[in-house]
Structure formats: C-alpha cells, structure tokens
C-alpha cells in the first residue's frame, strides 16, 4: 500500500490520521444508530479489544509469551467486585469503599500482584516462563473458586453500578461513551508507551535480549515493568467488563480467558497494537455470527481458528500491511531458549 505512486496520494502521516479520525467518529456514532442491545455488543467488543491490546505489549513488543493473562484481568474484576459490593471480607469494611475507591484499590492490587508474579516468573524464560504464568493464573482461579464465602464461588458476585465519579453508568449510552473514552485513552497510552524510547528498548529485548543487555540496559527491569503495565491495562478491561455485565464470575480467571488474548493477538497480528483490535473484532464477530447459525458455535469457531492458523499465519495485520514486523522465527527463538 505504501509503495503506491501518484501525486494525489496523501502524505502517510495525514492518511493514517484520517483513518484514525474516521474510525473514532464511526465508534462515537455507534449508539446513535444502533439499538441498545447492539451498543452493548460494541461495548463488549471494545473491552475485549483492550484486553487483547494489553497482551500485545507482552507478546508482540517484548516477545514474552504469557499463558496467564487471565490473572490480571480476572483479579482486577474480582478485587473491584469484592471491594465495591457488600461482601464480608475479613479486616476490610467493604461497605465503606465507594466504587471509585474500589477501582483504584483493584488496580493497585493488580499492580502489586503482577509485580510479584512477574518477578518470580521472569526468573525463567520461554516455555517455562509461560508455564509459571499459567500456574499463577490457575492458582488465582482456584482461590476464587474455592473461597466461596468471599467470592461467591461458582455463582460469582453481582455488581450493580450506580455512579462512578459522578457519572451514572446505568444508562447504556453513557456507559458506551465512558467505555469508548477509557479504551481509547488506554490505547493511546499504550501507543505512546511503545513508540517512546522505552518501547524501543522493549523491541530490542524482543529482537535480541543479550545484545540489549550488552548495550547496558537492565532488561529484567524493562520486562518486569511492561509485565506490570500490561497487567494494569488488562485489569482496566476486567473492571469495565464487571461494570458492563454487572457480575464477576470465575470464568474470567480461567486459563482459556488468557488463551483468548493469545488467539486474538495472533489472528489480528502481533506487535501492531491495532492488529489485536482486529483480532478481537474477528473473535467477537464470529461468536455473534456463528451463534445465530448453530448453538454449537464453538465447534465452528474452533474450525475457523484451525483454518486461520494453517492458512493465514501472519494474522490479518500481516495480510493488510508490512507493519507486522513480528515473524514466525522471532517467537520460535523465544520458546526454545
């Protein structure tokens, strides 16, 4: 696309700017032209996209493959739900914590937990790092599942959002714009992060960590900090999900939630940030579309994945542009240290 000739072509910068503005305006117009139900679907898509993009920070930019991205997502959701509702938590008077406070506490908890689990998991590399993150996520899932006096167990925690920072979230359109602003803000923050000098160091770790270390970068600190950042962004997605669906269920912490992030990022294209958004659209779109065809849509979804993996390995971003600079060989090296 960028190789086109011709004088009437817009300069690259303004062209991408046009695309961004058009996409944003289209998203902003959604609740004006759709039904409440459809707006709800787009909210779910935006949340899923934020979750997938946060995963891209790890796999796409830093080249570390976590199998446990369900942990910050689900932990954010549960920490928020536990503090925001009238659950009986030992030592903490939950009824006194307002929604705003619960959100901040949840984000802080996720940051601390990501720091500790990341510190431990990053002692290992490749498949072993992936397995440790999987184990942490599974511990989180089981902790929620088995401590039903705090977490409600299988039934989960019901959340009824009234007002957050003075905004009434019970109104569908209001909630949509809050979600759009939060997700867009997070996306831009991650974009800024990845294009900054810090992001360049992350990419250099992805390309060759040994060289990055020789250049004098403390790569462990970079990996740990991006692990925490990705965790916090995933937690934002988890909290939004809780506010939107009014419930926290253990499924958010199950390993397949993290698997979804992996699938979306791979289908969309790694290392692009917008690729995972496309991946989320594919996952969500195929889910909605296939459900109308058969109740056993997972069967078809599995088939779609399999076909995708075999025939479209570079993801949709790889098909659309050369921007997806993450290749097959790159990840190969990371999984086989």
């Amino acid at each position: 696309m960028s190789r086109e000739t011709g004088t009437r072509r817009l300069p690259a910068l303004s062209r991408t700017l046009v695309i961004r503005v058009v996409v944003f305006l289209a998203l902003a117009a959604v609740p004006l032209v759709t039904t409440g139900y459809q707006t709800g679907l787009v909210i779910n898509f935006l949340i899923l996209a934020l979750f997938a993009v946060s995963y891209d920070l790890l796999i796409g930019y830093t080249g570390i493959v976590s199998f446990g991205h369900a942990l910050p997502y689900g932990l954010g959701l549960y920490a928020f739900a536990i503090f925001a509702t009238d659950q009986s938590v030992p030592f903490v008077s939950t009824a006194a914590v307002p929604f705003e406070g619960a959100i901040l506490v949840a984000l802080a908890i996720v940051a601390v937990v990501s720091l500790v689990t990341g510190y431990l998991a990053l002692q290992a590399t490749g498949v072993y790092f992936a397995m440790i993150t999987l184990a942490f996520a599974q511990i989180g899932y089981l902790a929620v599942f088995e401590n039903s006096d705090i977490t409600g167990g299988d039934g989960g925690i019901l959340l009824f959002s009234q007002e957050v920072f003075g905004i009434a979230l019970s109104d569908g359109m209001t909630f949509y714009y809050v979600t759009l602003v939060v997700v867009t803000g997070c996306f831009l923050a991650m974009r800024r992060l990845t294009t900054s000098p810090y992001g360049q160091v992350l990419k250099s770790i992805r390309e060759n960590e040994t060289r990055a270390r020789f250049l004098g970068y403390d790569t462990f600190r970079y990996k740990l900090s991006v692990f925490v950042a990705a965790g916090v962004f995933a937690a934002v997605a988890g909290i939004l999900k809780g506010l939107h669906s009014n419930i926290a269920t253990p499924g958010a912490l199950y390993w397949s939630t993290g698997g979804d992030a992996l699938l979306m990022t791979l289908i969309g294209g790694m290392g692009t940030l917008w690729g995972p958004v496309v991946g989320a659209a594919v996952l969500f779109g195929s889910e909605e579309l296939l459900t109308t065809i058969t109740e056993h849509w997972l069967l078809l979804l599995g088939a779609v994945y399999v076909v995708f993996v075999i025939f479209v390995p570079s993801g949709i971003a790889g098909l659309l542009s050369s921007e997806a600079d993450r290749t097959v060989g790159d990840v190969l090296r990371e999984l086989r240290p």
Partner: peptide, 28 residues
C-alpha cells in the same frame, strides 16, 4: 504436519482450536 516448519506458537494456537472443537463436539 503442515505447521512443523513454523513457529511453535502456531502449533499451540492450532491445538487450542482443536481442543475447542473436540470439547464442543463431545457436547454435541
């Protein structure tokens, strides 16, 4: 077999998709 020359992550993704299909197939 078509994926052996590719990145192992694609094999993970593939077997993940197959697991989805098998699990749902059993429910059917």
């Amino acid at each position: 077999r078509p994926l052996y020359d590719r990145d192992p992550i694609y094999q993970i993704l593939l077997t993940f998709g197959l697991a989805l299909m098998f699990d749902e197939g059993v429910r059917v």
